[in-house]
Amino acid sequence: MNELFTVPVLLGILYSGVRLATPYLYAALGEMFAQRSGVVNLGVDGIMLMGAFAAFFVVSNTGNLLLGVLAAMLVGLLMGLIMSFVSVNLQAEQGISGIGLYLFGLGLSSLLFKKLSVSTRAIEGFPALPIPVLSDLPEIGDVFFKHNILVYIAFALVPVAAFVLNHTTLGLKVRAAGMKPEAADSLGVSVARVRYLCVTFGSMMAGLAGASLSIGLINLFQENMTSGLGFIAVALVYFGGWTPLGVMIGALLFSMVNALQLWVQVKAIPIPSDLAVMLPYILTIAALVLGRRARQPAALSKPFSRGEN
């Protein structure tokens, strides 16, 4: 067991944790905005798959990584508009329609993958971008400052999201739409518009999360490659108490436990691999049970109609 608590292993866990947290972070930060405005979007995983495919397809055909990112975000935007229309205009049950959207993304990305690309082939994804000076720091330079640009952007979005949410008029409107939509409405805030904006933004982030997998982390596309990652991202929003910092801590914790279980196996610590694999999920459930409920938006998953509420 002592083998596990050596500096190289702990640094390895940190490094993998930071990298693995990236797709969770994009998806969960986006979903957090949707939920703060009062809409639960369970379609995140499907949007991620579509984003991952779009990015991979564009990059493998054009070689342009930026175009790949834009394609993923565009696909996210379109799917976000669908989700917004269904949840805001049609006021449909959000859980069910989100699962519909997930299945849509899962099916369509598989179908397109089969019809549009003849074979899978690794592409040249975003290269590691060492940050000058900082990346030369002993030990931690490698861990924190030698990642690809999508990793840095994901973490940089955390303070930006916190600022927008807590210190801007837009953030106030978002929170109001999720907490007391009728009060927001009476003050002239268009709840529908705010929810449209947040759900669409969240979906764009989910698309970007997919891209961070297919052209940043793995550089390949595979059918159902997220395998439920988007649902974990939704859980991380609850885990993080609907705050950007909480979401980031959750994403890091979850990823590091995942990295830890891999090191447990590499170091041949006598714990059955099945048990090690269960660790992150046990943690998720424990965190959800013990997590804070205080900040849950009061109008979460409740459709809003002017004059009816």
């Binding site: 205009n89 049609l90 699962i99 997930y102 299945l103 459709p303």
Partner: peptide
């Protein structure tokens, strides 16, 4: 509000249809 279920149903149906397309017959 009556549109709720129709909307959800429609989306689910489309989703299921396309998911079915993804695992081709």
């Amino acid at each position: 509000m009556k549109l709720n279920r129709i909307g959800a149903g429609a989306l689910l149906a489309v989703g299921l249809l396309l998911a079915a397309c993804g695992t081709p017959t």
